[in-house]
Nucleic acid binder design. Structure first.
Lengths: 337, 337
DNA sequence: GCTGCAAACGTAACCGATAACGATTGCAAC
DNA sequence: GTTGCAATCGTTATCGGTTACGTTTGCAGC
């Protein structure tokens, strides 16, 4: 065991076993060309000293490290789901995972954070990376799979069927009898935000209802951005009977605003979101939303990245996973009917 | 921008700027002894080539890296809370975070996993580490803070007040009128499991009720371990009127078992857990449990580790954070009363 | 014009590991 | 007793940076 002092290195082992570091390296990596007696000596020295190879030194010298990277700009509840999916796929695969989070950029959307992180890891530490909701196109010397890519991204990606999900929400509201349905959009640099708005527009158009630009508010996916927008929509004389927010965070904030204004949900106002985060089920009333399995997104992304790294990926470059409408108490027929 | 090819290194920058790598290093690190003109040239070359220093190479050479490590054996929903707490504390602190997860050990409790991970990171990549629920004592050349330490651990740690929390649960059950209260214990190598059992015993003893060894089942914190134990307890002729499981995962599994046996909760049986994971609020009925803020655990651990790395830690070696009883629908007075 | 000194910069060793290559050894075949 | 070959092992260059140290340069002071 390393007794609190300097970490034990390969040359410590070599000295203790009376061989060169090259031989220790051969033993550690199971290479051919070491006598059984020497192997035993080296192993014993390794055991005694508690040697463990340095990931850093190894990855600097080797081209292949068997470590995959994941970069995210923040840890939300869904991030854990993604990670679970990733690790279940990576389990027993021989690939370890390193997650990198930068303290300066944490929580803020400084453009290009993902690029900086990738550059610091790729080519040395990791064989490939998963990037969650990047702010733009990503480049790297090693394979990259993007979860929830930026608008116009051509990189391999895994994303939920945002278009179908959003369409389903609006159709649900239309079925309930709503006609004035407002939309709080997300950060338009993300492809998912654009697809959700497109789903909203398409469902209305298909139902023969003109899209009213006055009913589209531009948020950025943060709850904070939604508060004033929801208030503005609800202060209108011709108040909408339903608000569809592009994600649950903004929808939950809308619920708060409605409550503050003394509106009854779903009596006076129906509210729907997108993502199905845990909090949505706990809200009062429960939030109608679209479930996109973050677990599956992570799972597929990991599967794809493994293949890309091994160079045997056969599937499509962009994977789209199905979504599921989850109806809860926050939506109902408008009272006026 | 690195155009998909080999990553751009410091010598690329040096060549492009017509200086040595030493000079580039000085510019990058803002060291003294470079003329303004050279600085400008180097900066321009860095800009043009899109150079980003390799974390690996830097950390190999430098003793200090300003990167902290976190090792966990799996990603549960509470892990995300811990991470949030850690990152909020680290935000703008200059310390980045690297999380390491090993695919071979993922989900399994092979003894010593944390030790292996630490040895691979410490001394080179990271300045210090946070270890979540290790299987034993951890040693490292760099500072380590343990969240939810192993039994008998002397390392700096942050933990919830498991004793008080467990006592509160049992007192709550006693107040409701329960007298036959069973306990499903957790993995006894963890200090938290031992403390929770001690809380159970103490509350009973303080109430003048003898501890019945027959009512104590030995689980290991996994839901799977709890199923047969719960069944055995509920199959008894003198069935307990309440079961307190050492964590929510086992308590939720107990709810399932009770339902399968046709028992009404809380009518026939009260069930309580510990941890307050998100699923507990969603269960039907909601699970009475003890809230330990994983966010705060992560937050405090990060604060402590930062200080330890800087060498200015003044506080106690073991931090204990308060817990809070959360009463939901799964506990009520026993029907027989 | 020479000395002295500091600023500016390059050279090379080094961090911990890997791998190509060369050197040594043992042993069988001649 | 050589020779030849394979097995075994050490030497050394290298990965991408950092830094101690040495060298060059510019300029003030005598």
């Amino acid at each position: 065991m390393a007794e609190g002092g300097a970490p034990v290195t390969m040359s410590d082992v070599a000295r203790s076993a009376g061989v060169s570091t090259a031989t220790v390296s051969r033993v550690v990596n199971g290479r051919y060309g070491v006598s059984a007696r020497t192997i035993a000596q080296v192993r014993s020295a390794i055991e005694q000293l508690g040697y463990e190879s340095s990931l850093v030194a190894t990855s600097l010298r080797r081209s292949r490290t068997n470590v995959l990277g994941l970069v995210t700009h923040s840890f939300q509840s869904y991030t854990a789901e993604v990670l679970k999916g990733v690790m279940d796929e990576l389990s027993q695969s021989g690939f370890d995972l390193i997650i990198y989070a930068n303290s300066d950029l944490y929580g803020s959307y400084s453009e290009g954070w993902e690029q900086r992180h990738l550059a610091r890891l790729a080519g040395t530490l990791t064989d490939g990376s998963i990037v969650v909701t990047p702010s733009g196109e990503v480049r790297s010397g090693t394979p990259v799979v993007v979860i929830d890519p930026a608008m116009g991204s051509t990189a391999p990606s895994v994303t939920a069927d945002n278009l179908a999900g959003a369409t389903a929400v609006v159709e649900h509201l239309l079925d309930l009898g709503h006609r004035r349905i407002a939309f709080i959009a997300g950060r338009s640099s993300l492809a998912s935000a654009v697809a959700r708005e497109e789903g909203y527009r398409r469902a209305l158009t298909d139902a023969g209802i003109p899209v009213d630009p006055e009913l589209i508010a531009r948020g950025d996916f943060t709850p904070e951005s939604a508060a004033p927008l929801a208030r503005a929509l609800l202060d209108r004389a011709d108040r909408p009977t339903a608000i569809f927010a592009a994600n649950d965070g903004m929808a939950l904030k809308t619920l708060e605003v409605a409550r503050d204004l003394g509106l009854d949900v779903p009596g006076d106002l129906s509210v729907a979101g997108f993502d199905n985060i845990p909090d949505s089920a706990l809200a009062e009333p429960g939030l109608t939303t679209v479930d996109q399995s973050m677990y599956l997104l992570g799972n597929e992304a990991a599967r794809m990245l493994k293949s890309l790294v091994r160079g045997d990926w056969e599937g499509p470059g962009q994977i789209v996973l199905p979504t599921r409408l989850v109806v809860r108490g926050s939506t109902a027929a408008p009272r006026s009917l």
